[in-house]
């Protein structure tokens, strides 16, 4: 499996990753190499194998539907790049 420049740009867009145009050929080469490695999976027949999502066959734990977190907005927002009146600031999204 080999990726071309337009596919790399599409994947980068899906992942919302800005990459420099000059770096695209390098990404295409390295990602193609990694996919080449990954393709070694095709040597085994897995048609009758159940997929394994998790190492321990556990059921998801449930808990009571009660409040467990206290409000620490100010503490958490100390790490935010831009905040005003307790709100996170982003560039304008609605005209």
């Amino acid at each position: 499996m080999s990726l071309d420049a337009s596919e790399v740009e599409k994947i980068a867009h899906l992942a919302r990753l800005g990459i420099d145009e000059k770096d695209v050929p390098d990404y295409a080469e390295n990602l193609s190499r990694i996919l080449g490695l990954v393709e070694q999976m095709s040597v085994v027949d897995t048609s009758h194998v159940e997929p394994m999502a998790h190492p321990l066959a556990l059921a998801q734990r449930l808990r009571e539907d009660v409040v467990t977190e206290t409000n620490q907005r100010e503490l958490f927002q100390e790490n935010a790049p831009a905040v005003e009146d307790g709100l996170f600031l982003v560039p304008k999204v609605i005209e």
Binding site: A12, L31, V38, M41, T46, E50, A53
Partner: peptide
């Protein structure tokens, strides 16, 4: 990017599900 590609529409079964089967 590899992860995004493996999970994207059309490739999910060939990569992600296949990998989960190999994992078993």
């Amino acid at each position: 990017m590899i992860g995004t590609y493996a999970l994207s529409a059309g490739y999910y079964d060939a990569y992600y599900i296949k990998a989960q089967k190999c994992r078993r």
